[in-house]
Design a protein around this nucleic acid. Sequence first.
DNA 1: AAACATTTTAATCAAATGATTAAACTTTAA
DNA 2: TTAAAGTTTAATCATTTGATTAAAATGTTT
Lengths: 209, 209
Amino acid sequence: MIMAKAKKKEEVPAEEKIKQAARKLFTERGFDAVKTRDIAAEAGINLALLNYYFRSKQKLFDVIMVENFEQFVQQLIPVMGDENLSLDEIIAKVSGNYIDMLRNNPDLPFFILNEMKNESSELLVIREKMKDVKSGFIKRVEKAMKEGKLTPLHMGHLMMNFMGLVIFPFVAKPVLMKVNGFSNKEFDALMDERKDLVPIWLKAIMKAK
Amino acid sequence: MIMAKAKKKEEVPAEEKIKQAARKLFTERGFDAVKTRDIAAEAGINLALLNYYFRSKQKLFDVIMVENFEQFVQQLIPVMGDENLSLDEIIAKVSGNYIDMLRNNPDLPFFILNEMKNESSELLVIREKMKDVKSGFIKRVEKAMKEGKLTPLHMGHLMMNFMGLVIFPFVAKPVLMKVNGFSNKEFDALMDERKDLVPIWLKAIMKAK
DNA sequence: AAACATTTTAATCAAATGATTAAACTTTAA
DNA sequence: TTAAAGTTTAATCATTTGATTAAAATGTTT
């Protein structure tokens, strides 16, 4: 029997355990706040093994960063490029899907925002990915604006509005819970409502003048 | 001549220099990323003096945190409570004022979001401050909803929408600049436009169904 | 079994960092 | 001028933290 990784039974290999622990902690707390010893403890392995597999904390982080950023944008690509859907349908579907994704990964937005504030890494990859996401959808929106079906508006505003309505609540969750006294349950109920509301609001925004 | 702080000429006292340096660095980078030696260097004073005046990094940070949070909310209070303005006027004025304030303090939102994710400090003060902000305005909105002038909606949604449209762009600025290739100038121009656009959009949102 | 790869342990480094101390210097007040 | 308060400097601690090393233990392949 050929096995790349040797292990007693059917256990998860150490390298994978380290990655899982790193993903959890880095996503929750960010690069600086996580210590290599935290990761080793969370993974249930020895500190030395982390450096054995990943050479350094930074290298391990880079792996997680790329994976997280992909999760952050990947979901948008197939829906936004779907020529069989109307613009309204795309907005509704993307909003709903994205809010669902964020409910399962509530720390993802802050992680991306926080880490992209510092690093300049992986810029090329990111820019390329986003080009694919935007091209088709943007052209259709611009066409609708020219035809007078939508109020003419800089694409940056639309992107900020979408992100602001969909993503921001997850970034602001701690503040909202402290300031407004929301419970986790209440917050979750509001997010569920927003799956239907955000598309309505985005449509209203795009037609308002 | 009686002077609490002794100094050669008309210089800014060391305690104030430390606070100013601390405010700048903490607001830009957050608690963890700022080292006491950074603050001392930025203030042009010796490291020992920082601990002499403020006892510890944490104590110094607490001072800055309170001041920053006050700036974050204080501006809202007088306008939102102004009974002489219509709801539309309040929304327009608050949006414009707040975007202007954030253009002068672009790092403030992320600072608040980041630090409130961790700490539980100053909860009482915060909660009290926010009660003042909300009470009057909220009652008027709820009344308008009951009268059918606005679409009935959980107040949490309205707050998220306002913050999402006004504040989020400043939090996402690094991402937007990297992903969309915005320059500082372009971003600033968009923010200027939003002073007029956000009130229009918020009104559209509150009437949409 | 022998050879090889993987995993674990324990000890240790070097640098960064928050904090303290003691001594000197400067300004103000008595 | 002297005493007190405020300010500065330099040296030093103890802890944390990322990383490395050497050696042993465990499992796999030949």
